[in-house]
Design a protein around this nucleic acid. Structure first.
Lengths: 207, 207
DNA sequence: TGACAAAACGGGGAGCGTCTCCGTATAGTC
DNA sequence: GACTATACGGAGACGCTCCCCGTTTTGTCA
């Protein structure tokens, strides 16, 4: 499965590999500072390569973003594994996972937008990543629903979108940091089902 | 309070007024079709005026947007009044208001982004509008909190942001229309406090 | 080690968008 | 009808994305 492996195409040249990696490093810094909307040409210049080189490796902004996030995927995965084994209960596990997702989507300023777009299209490189995380969300959600700590009518995709939306709100760099915690609280109340309290299905807005 | 009133500056010329109105009409159509990210030059061309004329009346995209929304403000205000008098209870009133806000923020594709930005800056023309609506949200929220149907720890500003975020998620034009209703349901569960069920304050994420 | 083909590089430039500037046209006034 | 403040329009400066293609580099094979 590795990039240089046994498939039909031959291994990439050494300089290409070097440039690709260097562009990736530069983009990571650049996006961290300027957000995902920053100038790609500026990244190329800062990396010391021509614009053509950048666009050959990454045909568009989304491709570059996808490659960048691939590195962070690992961190999220290990967080998932940690939650699987160490969480006190299914509700806390789901909560922790959504928190991790929210943080992941906030890695760069403006990142939630392309992620949301990707979650809708399902044909982009980012979409694959998103789908994988939705599946994991589903896993945690089902566990919580099975033990009665999450409402039955909630769907994994919607929780994923809620995590993106929370990240989106945080991205405003609003002076009020408390909003972040507040949204997380509202969200948890939104899906959580206290066992002492029985209630039917979706209470409203099911027009 | 009207634009041509008694203040120091003299009344605008008739052609200026005409152009301004026409640009506004054109922008309304254009943004409806292409989203708030559409080309301003294209709007000028479609309106049959030069780019300079557009930028003289509206120095930037946000100013144009603010003027455009000013018209819709009225509709929201009357919705507010309707809810004040006709809602069955405080919880339904708040729910209805948040729904109206969400719809308002979805008037054009991409509108939630500048609104969120405005809500954070407080120095833009849009910010004034946002603050007004946050105040109204506060009114409905307080009423619901007073009669025990909304959680005490919720703040109006956060609910406003939630409404924007919901609109943002909808904007993805995701094939799955059910997500819209799902988010609204999660949100209501998030702030609502069922009287039969007593619980302390924010349950998690207060790390 | 030298030569050759495939692979990769780089930056000029087309195309599009924002926004400014200033010579020209026009509305309102006397 | 003339005069001036006001407004108009579109050319053009500038920045961004992305393609194209002449030039350079890499890896290979004798």
């Amino acid at each position: 499965m590795s990039r240089t492996a046994t498939s039909g195409a031959r291994a990439p040249r050494a300089d290409a590999r070097r440039n690709r990696d260097h562009i990736l490093d530069t983009a990571e810094q650049y996006f961290s500072k300027h957000g995902v909307g920053g100038s790609l040409d500026a990244i190329a210049k800062q990396a010391g390569v021509g614009a053509g080189t950048l666009y050959r490796h990454f045909p568009n902004r989304e491709a570059l973003l996808a490659a960048l996030l691939a590195a962070r995927d690992e961190a999220l995965m290990s967080r998932r594994d940690e939650l699987r084994t160490k969480a006190a209960n299914a509700a806390d596990a789901l909560d922790g996972w959504l928190d991790a997702l929210t943080e992941w989507a906030g890695a760069f300023d403006g990142l939630p937008d392309p992620l949301r777009a990707a979650a809708a299209t399902s044909t982009s490189p980012l979409a694959v990543t998103c789908e994988g995380f939705i599946t994991t969300t589903e896993e945690f959600l089902h566990a919580a629903q099975r033990d009665g700590s999450a409402r039955k009518e909630i769907r994994a995709r919607d929780l994923f979108l809620v995590a993106l939306a929370t990240s989106w709100v945080r991205g405003a760099a609003l002076a009020d940091g408390a909003s972040a915690a507040a949204l997380a609280g509202i969200t948890r109340n939104g899906w959580e089902l206290d066992p002492s309290h029985t209630r039917g299905v979706s209470p409203t807005t099911a027009d």
